[in-house]
Design a protein around this nucleic acid. Sequence first.
DNA 1: CGGCCAACCTGTGCGC
DNA 2: TGCGCACAGGTTGGCC
Length: 278
Amino acid sequence: MPELPEVETVTQGIRTKLINKKIKQVLVYRRDLRFSMDPKFEKKVKGAKINNVSRRAKYILIQLDNNITLIIHLGMSGRIAIENLNNNNERIFKHTHLEFITSNKKKLKYIDPRRFGSILICQTNNLYKHKLLKNLAPEPLSSEFCKNYLLNSLKFRKTNIKSIIMNQLVVVGVGNIYASESLYKAKIKPNRIAMSLTSIECDRLVKSIKKVLKRSIKLGGSSINDYSLVDGNLGFFQREFEVYGRDGKFCRKKTCKSRILRIVIGQRSSFYCNKCQK
DNA sequence: CGGCCAACCTGTGCGC
DNA sequence: TGCGCACAGGTTGGCC
């Protein structure tokens, strides 16, 4: 699914609806996600209050009042839905693996058909020592992610620039959609050798990544297939895709008459305009 | 270490 | 209608 804007909007949704609420009931239907869930998960979580909900990279962090933080990743197909309890038109999802019932009479569902996502438990005081969190690169919207940082990260690297910006050890949160969109905005071809980027191009790329991600967060992320926000509403950034999924269609730049191309880079579809991107 | 690629799993949409 | 294939928003572990 979900790249930074989607995870961010879901995080905000959970925070708005469930902060300071108690988890009254925990129902686990499947534990065999990407990592197997703690056998004592229910016992550890039941009765705790949700103190805070935040995001690091593509991880949702739900901080409880018992020194436990839940680390949730949505993988490719994961989603969160929050509904009113005793709702007559409850939406039924085939692949619901976990449900919380909270003190304000809401039901949170974790749904993930492909089960590439994960739900892990971590001691809050050791959170950033967790193996999934300790090696993560800077947040793309932080000031740490700047031209000089990127320039430095590219030094001597012969792989393509798209793989670099999708590498969570270089910068977090940028996935397949926003990589293509950012490179289009920065006028850089996705298969350019990373170390060939000039300082000016690095500057454009950093600014493009920030701009694209912020704009998407503002629109509630991208809803493709049936992906949605926690309340079932859709994000709208997909309407503004310049290149993603637009292969064969005309480049959106008015004066450009060429068609968007699709190539495969690192096993992932990549979309670009051969004329606008250098 | 860097870079490449298979693997994890289920669903959908397309051509025949 | 059904079958087989390509493809889907992520990450990692193993190999050279």
